[in-house]
Design a protein around this nucleic acid. Structure first.
Lengths: 242, 242
DNA sequence: AAAAAGTGATGACTAATGTCATATATTAAA
DNA sequence: TTTAATATATGACATTAGTCATCACTTTTT
């Protein structure tokens, strides 16, 4: 967790939201931001903690989740390079969710005050940010819709494709389409709104149907298009863009 | 559907978002907006139609819904006086949802171009709007969370309380807490992510438990607090504000 | 290497809730 | 008013998916 600030202008991550600011503004951000490298499986912020700003993922893998009372945690979102986290809390007193790293991750933080200054002086930036929220809202409700209409099997497939969408395939073995993230059965279950047992069973079925291959802790998607076809009726990826 | 424009400055609805603009800006809006009175059960906009702007409910009752393929429509949101509709679509090509009136409603419309001008020249307005989106996102995910953790009975109670939250009680009989909106069993089911039959059954049970009273087409909440207690564990109304 | 902790797979069982069928109200239309 | 159309209530049944229990397999710790 060392502070490792560097100049936004030189940042290799051009998907970052901050890059949408006028370039002369970037050095101002450099002075305000706070960049930290988190090891794997570390909380970035906690549900119900005070909201102090927004986090920008320079690189890494993050899950955003909220805790049910009796039941297990619910993974609300996966986020990777260039994505924002903590924006759900922005404008509220406390975070409605927690965030934790799924792998070592470098994350930049900008505090509320600095953000407000940016928002007040850069209408296009603010507008872009607002459009991002609008899009997130659409996605959230899209997901709510298919959660209520899909079978557990379909939701599990959707969760696998979502993980692929967010983190892509492993770069070590480019030909094999191996998900570039390790998620426990419980975590997949949580994304897919079901139980770990159901995920185990379903993955076994999907493997027997030659849709996936379980490779140790990792999952290979043998035919992404076919998987997509199994759930396409719901129009999930119609307005996908992240 | 007559155009019935009037001055925003004189509008009795002070909850409207437009009222957050500097007062000298309101007459500018007057020239741009388009106010229409819709009869009951009329579509305001359609899913997949081109998005041309945002609608502001001056007064009335509206449901926002999206159509599943095989299954029935899903009610995404209820909206009343002062609420915005169509903001989900803003920034996208097409509306992800439809909106229809549940009662006669007067609705003001502002086109994309005018909105953009407002957003570029009124940072506080834009910021407020962004915070609204942020809040809607929190609510949407809060709802997704409890949809996945509550029983159907609890979700139906939550739907009733949501209708109360949005439209309040009937003004004709102030002492009786009669929901100020008529929703079919199917519509309630759609809000509560269940079936019309389950709603019928559950309402009968809730009546036998003296929590509600079915009065013809309307529903009376006999003890709102008790109903709230039945679902409070989920923290649904913790950050409620609409 | 052995032990312990965590994770995954799978069978048996249960409970919740969706589906279907039918009867009954209620509202709208003829 | 009669008829038709729509909405609601309720029973019987089917099915999905959750729960519990057990075993096997991995990874980490000692």
């Amino acid at each position: 967790m060392n502070k490792i600030n560097s100049a936004c202008a030189l940042c290799e991550n051009k998907n970052c939201f901050i890059q949408k600011l006028p370039s002369q503004r970037l050095s101002w951000v450099d002075a305000k931001k706070y960049t930290v490298c988190f090891p794997k499986d570390q909380n970035i912020f906690w549900e119900n903690a005070e909201v102090n700003g927004i986090h920008f993922i320079k690189n890494g893998k993050v899950k955003v989740f909220s805790s049910g009372l009796n039941k297990k945690d619910k993974v609300v979102r996966l986020a990777g390079d260039g994505h924002i986290i903590g924006h759900r809390g922005y404008g509220a007193e406390q975070y409605p969710v927690s965030a934790a790293t799924l792998s070592e991750s470098t994350i930049c933080f900008i505090d509320n005050g600095s953000l407000y200054e940016l928002f007040m002086t850069n209408p296009v930036f603010t507008y872009t940010m607002m459009m991002f929220y609008s899009q997130e809202l659409r996605k959230s409700e899209q997901r709510a819709k298919y959660n209520s209409q899909m079978s557990s099997k379909e939701r599990i497939i959707a969760a696998l494709l979502y993980a692929k969408e967010t983190f892509g395939y492993s770069q070590t073995d480019l030909n094999a389409q191996i998900l570039n993230v390790y998620l426990t059965r419980s975590e997949i279950a949580s994304i897919a709104d079901t139980t770990a047992e159901e995920v185990s069973r379903t993955l076994t079925i999907l493997e027997s149907e030659k849709h996936i291959l379980k490779k140790g802790r990792n999952i290979q998607l043998l035919n992404e298009k076919k998987l997509l076809d199994l759930i396409r009726d719901y129009g999930i990826y119609d307005n996908a863009d992240s």
